[in-house]
């Protein structure tokens, strides 16, 4: 058992929030509620990032996932007509098999995590400066490629969403 420390308490609270948000997302019936529960989870994950000395990443997480992606999803929800309630249709075999499969996957991963010796001391906290140097010196080409990817995705999304209108 890890000794009780401030970090542990913070991790515990954030983990419970993240898992709780995810479970709520699965169990809510209204689509909008699900999206909001996921926003809650994303916020908790940002907190986890801060615990891991990745403050910049936490900001990015809040800006993009909590902000942009969630808003995008809410737009998506609102643009499509929904039977507002997720009506459970009987697919018992599929559901049970999914549950079993996911549980088995989790069991395997659990087993792997607890049998693998992850050695190593914690690294020095990475500053935003070191992160920036790493991105713009070491990984500048992937960065540019990501920029191109985002552009292509933007154009592609517009074309996909527009095509039917032109008819």
């Amino acid at each position: 058992m890890p000794s009780v420390s401030g970090e542990f308490i913070a991790f515990f609270i954030l983990a419970v929030m993240a898992i709780g948000g995810a479970v709520f997302m699965i169990n809510f019936t209204r689509v909008m509620h699900m999206a909001l529960a996921l926003v809650f989870t994303f916020l908790s994950i940002a907190g986890i990032f801060i615990l891991l000395d990745a403050e910049y990443l936490a900001m990015v997480q809040i800006l993009i996932n909590v902000g942009a992606v969630s808003v995008l999803m809410v737009f998506g929800i609102m643009l499509t007509r929904h039977k507002q309630e997720e009506k459970p249709k009987a697919r018992p075999l599929h559901t049970i098999l999914s549950l079993l499969g996911v549980a088995a996957l989790f069991a395997v991963m659990w087993r792997i995590f607890y049998t693998t010796p992850f050695g190593g001391d914690p690294a020095d906290p990475a500053t935003v400066q070191s992160l920036g140097e790493s991105i713009f010196k070491q990984h500048v080409i992937p960065l540019e490629l990501t920029a191109v990817l985002l552009l292509v995705a933007l154009v592609g999304a517009i074309i996909l969403a527009k095509r039917e209108e032109s008819k």
Partner: peptide
């Protein structure tokens, strides 16, 4: 970044 792109294209 890729996630964002994925979300945009997926939604489109």
């Amino acid at each position: 970044a890729v996630t964002a792109a994925e979300a945009a294209v997926g939604l489109a």
